[in-house]
């Protein structure tokens, strides 16, 4: 009898997930030193919520021994609890580039330098870090490495060679396919954020966390001052039984309709 052996392609994927250490979403944002510095007093730091989505998708793609997930953070030693949290969620190992993340340009350069020396199939970021950079790091990494970068994705499938990605556009979506290395920044939809279980938390303590030093790069700019939004005036209450008056007020007083 002829036995047909399926052709098994041995794939061992390597995924790098970039995680930033950000203030908890409930944080009331205030500043010190004449509004030049974010006031970290009493602030709880977390894994950036979008990075949890990226990490969760990476873990799903590698499930069943199909690959390994490395997390990388550019930050000083104080970010290590956040890195351990990512290991508890399920990353295999971690790298910390030992420097304050000056800005996106600096951060992306450090990650690109690390990725150059280590052969990753894909690099996943969050859509944006909820502190102050704002959706820059992923595309900058792509540019430093001269590989495609797909921003604000909501779906990612990978068949071992080609990734099929859905990206958000105004009023819809775009489907993109990429063969070869790429960077993507993940938004909601890409995966459900995983919550660490007890075993994850225990094993996170012993998973490898390597510290590497930063590589120098020019500074192109910096934040010189922060402002908080101007307080609003008192609310004008309209009795519910006269709700229709709202339209007149929006038209002739607020002049927005």
């Amino acid at each position: 009898m002829l036995v047909l052996l399926p052709l098994i392609k041995y794939i061992h994927m390597k995924i790098l997930v970039c995680i930033s250490n950000v203030p908890d979403t409930t944080t009331k944002i205030t500043f010190t030193n004449d509004n030049t510095q974010f006031n970290t007093a009493g602030v709880q730091f977390i894994v950036n919520p979008y990075d949890e989505i990226a990490l969760s998708r990476a873990i799903e793609l590698c499930e069943g021994g199909k690959g390994t997930v490395t997390v990388i953070n550019v930050g000083e030693v104080a970010t290590e609890p956040t890195i351990r949290k990512a290991l508890a969620i399920g990353a295999d190992d971690a790298v910390r580039v030992n420097a304050a993340p000056r800005d996106a340009y600096f951060t992306a350069f450090q990650i690109a330098e690390y990725a150059k020396a280590n052969d990753f199939d894909m690099i996943l970021c969050g859509r944006e870090s909820i502190d102050y950079n704002g959706s820059q790091v992923a595309a900058m990494i792509g540019e430093f490495l001269d590989i495609p970068s797909i921003s604000i994705i909501k779906k990612l499938d990978f068949d071992g060679t080609t990734a099929t990605i859905e990206r958000e556009i105004e009023g819809g979506k775009e489907v993109v396919s990429v063969t070869g290395k790429f960077v993507a920044s993940c938004a909601e939809g890409t995966a459900e954020a995983k919550i660490p279980n007890m075993r994850g938390i225990m094993s996170a303590r012993t998973k490898p966390l390597t510290v590497v030093e930063a590589v120098a790069i020019d500074e192109l700019g910096k934040v010189t001052k922060f402002e908080t939004p101007a307080p609003r005036g008192a609310v004008k209450l309209i009795p519910a039984e006269n709700a229709e008056n709202l339209i007149g007020l929006l038209h002739s007083e607020a002049k927005v309709i």
């Binding site: 203030p23 009331k28 944002i29 500043f31 944006e128 909820i130 502190d131 102050y132 704002g134 020019d218 500074e219 192109l220 700019g221 910096k222 934040v223 010189t224 001052k225 922060f226 402002e227 908080t228 939004p229």
Partner: peptide, 14 residues
Amino acid sequence: AFSGKAFAITSLTS
């Protein structure tokens, strides 16, 4: 900055 909770004045030197 901070997802709309604040503003940052960024100075560019490049």
